[in-house]
Simulated assay, not measured.
Amino acid sequence: MKTGDVLPSLELPEISRTTLALYAGASGDHNPMHIDLDVARSGGMDDVFAHGMLSMAYLGRLLTNYVPQERIRTYSVRFASITPLHAKPTCTGTVTKVEDGLAHLDIAVTLSDGTVTLRGDAVVAA
């Protein structure tokens, strides 16, 4: 691992209502803004949208595709935008620094229109 290395991107399938229902069931997060069209519309949205933690889980998968889970030392994110229904997220990452056996990564989830929905960073054992 060296500064400037780019992680293999993780391209995900389109976010569907089924995706949201399955995630809600698996996570226990049944917030109706993510699964009930009427509630989403009453909140001013055109439709339901993905759970932020679903995007965070996808980004976690990017990391564990790169290194074994036991090598992840820190992982944090900032939610930047919603992921609408039918969006196709792509997770990316870049090594920004390697020091004292630790690689520092900038990571993100981006939609096909260029919208960044999640920005984060991680430190992994190099």
Rank of each mutant, 00 (worst) to 15 (best):
D106M: 00
G114T: 07
R41W: 08
G93E: 10
D121M: 13
F79Y: 14
R41G: 02
R17Q: 07
T64P: 08
D29H: 13
R73L: 10
A103Q: 00
A24W: 09
A126Y: 08
A50R: 10
V48P: 03
T19S: 15
K97S: 15
L105Y: 10
A126L: 07
I15N: 00
C91E: 13
L62Y: 13
F49I: 02
P32F: 14
V109E: 09
I82F: 12
E14L: 09
D106T: 07
A87T: 03
D106C: 00
T115N: 04
D113G: 06
F49W: 04
D47F: 14
S112Q: 15
S81V: 09
K88R: 12
A24M: 03
S55C: 05
M45V: 09
I107A: 03
H34A: 08
H104T: 12
T83I: 15
V77N: 08
G52M: 02
A122P: 09
D46K: 12
V39S: 12
L22K: 00
I82R: 05
D46E: 15
E99H: 09
A57Y: 03
L105V: 05
I15M: 01
G44I: 08
R17G: 05
A24H: 04
A125E: 15
L37F: 04
P68M: 06
S81A: 15
R17V: 03
A40L: 11
I82L: 14
A50T: 13
H86P: 00
V123D: 10
M56P: 01
V124A: 07
R61C: 03
A26K: 02
M33P: 02
F79W: 13
S27I: 12
H104A: 10
L22W: 00
T83N: 13
T115D: 07
L85Y: 11
K2Q: 14
T18N: 11
V123R: 06
H51V: 08
Y75L: 02
P32N: 12
M33T: 15
D100H: 05
L22N: 01
G114A: 06
D38M: 07
F79V: 13
T94P: 03
T83Q: 07
T110V: 12
P13L: 00
D46R: 12
S55I: 12
Y23A: 08
R119C: 06
A125R: 15
G52K: 02
G52Q: 04
A40W: 13
G44Q: 04
D5L: 06
I82Y: 08
Q69R: 05
T83G: 03
D121I: 09
V98K: 00
